[in-house]
């Protein structure tokens, strides 16, 4: 059985170490926060906050307190606020240890595409390009294949890039792959998925 969304998030949470400052993207990456356990992790929201708390109780929403997905959230005892230039200064400056992000395509050289499909509605890259260029480690969490069954892990991206050679690790419903010299390396297969299954489902070069 390939991993489901929650299992992928739980696997991604294993990437995080005590004391890390981390940025989580929208979608499955957001679920990672549910699986950090006892680890002391500080979540960044790139609009200008470190120490992001859970959603507020009904009736306690504060319009001045939102995350990068514009959802109402809460603060924690450790929380700090700052302006967006400072926020992206810490991203660009490599102070954020890791970003866990969704993707449309990842290439074997670490190229990432996750912001634009030509011909479709273009909404913008938001902070994605800054994050992948700046943070210490970029971990992609996504389904291995699109809804037509085509590999999203490619020799080369077909969509406009968010960043060039920026991805370090790919976690999909089928397993975990690292971007290394010359291609991808299998780190782990999902429960019940064989290495042959993973290779068959992947267009990119697996060493």
């Amino acid at each position: 059985m390939p991993w489901d969304r929650n299992q992928m998030a739980a696997r991604a949470a294993q990437e995080l170490e005590d004391g890390m400052y981390v940025n989580l993207g929208i979608g499955i990456p957001t679920l990672v926060a549910n699986y950090v356990g006892d680890k002391d992790i500080t979540l960044q929201s790139e609009n200008g906050m470190l120490g992001m708390g859970p959603f507020p109780f009904e009736g306690e929403e504060d319009p001045d307190l939102i995350n990068a997905g514009k959802q109402t959230i809460t603060e924690l005892a450790r929380t700090s606020y700052f302006d967006s230039a400072t926020s992206f200064g810490m991203i660009r400056g490599g102070k954020i240890a890791a970003a866990i992000l969704g993707a449309m395509e990842v290439a074997e050289n670490g190229d990432l595409a996750n912001w634009m499909i030509p011909g479709k509605l273009v909404k913008g890259m938001g902070g994605a390009m800054d994050l992948v260029a700046g943070v210490g480690r970029v971990i992609v969490v996504m389904d291995h294949q699109n809804k037509h069954g085509d590999s999203k892990v490619l020799k080369a991206c077909t969509l406009p890039l968010t960043g060039r050679s920026v991805v370090d690790r790919i976690i999909t419903n089928l397993g975990v792959l690292d971007v290394v010299e010359g291609g991808l390396k299998i780190v782990e297969c999902a429960d019940g998925v064989t290495e042959a299954d993973l290779r068959a489902a992947t267009e990119a070069t697996i060493l």
């Binding site: 859970p54 959603f55 507020p56 109780f57 009904e58 009736g59 306690e60 929403e61 319009p63 001045d64 939102i66 997905g69 514009k70 959802q71 109402t72 959230i73």
Partner: peptide, 15 residues
């Protein structure tokens, strides 16, 4: 007015 774009909340029993 301070309009909220995405009102997200959790239930108290989830605490």
């Amino acid at each position: 007015e301070k309009r909220i774009e995405q009102r997200t909340v959790r239930k108290r029993e989830e605490a």
